[in-house]
């Protein structure tokens, strides 16, 4: 994959996953109650992109990205860190099944936001490599 093509793919991921994984949570009012927070978390993880093509959950967006990426960036530390961040973020899906399971809001927001930050690191790494 050409440098430019790879960068475009990462920027698209930043938009589709990095931004929309955190947006439903960061757009909540400070005094949102537990039910509202759970609803927002569900939107973030399961209805991450809702548009003309229907609903795409975060897990699908991530897997589509990996499929398109193929074997690129195998040795990238930034990609490794991103994989871990995505894995932690997606694991919050479990709490949606059980309303009695407590949610640590600060950690949830931090871990979902971390995905965008790690994509940013990966973009920065690739830009640096491309600039030579």
């Amino acid at each position: 994959m050409a440098d430019e093509e790879l960068l475009d793919l990462l920027l698209e991921l930043q938009h589709d996953l990095g931004k929309y994984l955190r947006l439903p949570l960061t757009m909540l009012p400070a005094d949102a109650d537990e039910a509202l927070f759970r609803e927002a978390l569900e939107r973030a993880l399961r209805q991450t992109r809702k548009g003309p093509d229907g609903v795409r959950p975060a897990r699908d967006i991530w897997h589509e990205f990996l499929a398109e990426l193929g074997g690129e960036l195998r040795d990238s530390d930034a990609l490794r860190a991103l994989r871990e961040a995505v894995s932690r973020a997606l694991s919050w899906d479990g709490v949606l099944e059980d309303a009695s399971e407590p949610i640590d809001r600060t950690t949830v927001v931090a871990e979902l936001s971390a995905v965008g930050a790690r994509i940013g690191d990966l973009i920065a790494e690739q830009r640096e490599l491309a600039d030579g």
Binding site: L11, D16, R49, P52
Partner: peptide
């Protein structure tokens, strides 16, 4: 993130991905 026919043309965009972005 729309099909190409629903996008407005954008001067300077070298790829469909950029036109979308």
């Amino acid at each position: 993130d729309l099909p190409e026919e629903r996008l407005l043309p954008l001067t300077g965009a070298s790829s469909l991905r950029r036109r979308k972005r």
